[in-house]
Design a protein around this nucleic acid. Sequence first.
DNA 1: CCCCAAATTGATATGTTATAACATTCAATC
DNA 2: GATTGAATGTTATAACATATCAATTTGGGG
Lengths: 161, 161
Amino acid sequence: MPTLGFHKHDHASCISSTLERAEAHCVAHNLKFTPVRKRTLEILLAEHRALGAYDLLAMLSEEGLGTAPPVAYRALDFLTGAGFAHKIEGLNAYIACAHLGEDHAPAFLVCTRCKTVAEADTAADKGRLGQAAAATGFQIEKTVIEAMGICPACVEDAPCA
Amino acid sequence: MPTLGFHKHDHASCISSTLERAEAHCVAHNLKFTPVRKRTLEILLAEHRALGAYDLLAMLSEEGLGTAPPVAYRALDFLTGAGFAHKIEGLNAYIACAHLGEDHAPAFLVCTRCKTVAEADTAADKGRLGQAAAATGFQIEKTVIEAMGICPACVEDAPCA
DNA sequence: CCCCAAATTGATATGTTATAACATTCAATC
DNA sequence: GATTGAATGTTATAACATATCAATTTGGGG
């Protein structure tokens, strides 16, 4: 079951294999996977949690990849447009896609304490909203499905919460 | 079926009856339904679409109810806390609750063109995210379920979109 | 009635997130 | 090697949200 992300995994290989798939996708679709874009995705993959645009910008600027907000927002626009990353609306933050390449309607379990995010692939969720939409003639362009809460690790750290 | 909001209804009576229910809820729970809070809810009910905090603030300040951002945000905090309004995360905007009094996990169909919002009451959506959460020990505190798209009226106005 | 404590409001300032606008550079194509 | 479209650099500002502290109101006990 590949839907959740709150368990351990081989992180280094998950990063490199995702980057490879992203690279391949760009070649196939004639997209330019420039240094800033690639590095931004790498950072998101390495952090494995939601990062704010300005957090990212700080890291990018430490590496000499640009200092002004548009640098980060442009990279994030590209990544989200290509499906390599998602925005977590409930946090105003961004995360690498965990199902890169699969056309999907993502759903997230978001830990508000540590900002770890698990991405579930729930076509059925879209289906239910889709039913309601179809009943009224509403045309869905994008779905935002997020559960905010406390992840297992944080629950253990502070059970009293 | 009361789940959707893209059809006509008796708007004046929907406003007044909702306000009455809100009033009753405040009495029952010892909450203070002060002028700013009440007026803010009235405005949200009358507009019947998502409004930004600063849009609201502009209206409130025209009526002498305060000029600084905290005025609007405090009123919105109260209303969302009491369950009288919801935040649409995908728009950074706020809307009156369409199911006031019922304990519910709201889901929204949001028109990105006219900002009209239909609120569906979908316990089942929460159930699906809930399954995923239960499987990993994630404790859900709040769900964000939003479909962004084009409402029937806007589709007719500009079918070419 | 007065005082206290708690909640609300008023006001200023600031923090955070995001985009507009325009100049410049780069890379592919012809 | 000129054209052109995409990407980047840069400045400024728009849009969204909160911290802080003082002033006021409100309700309950002495």
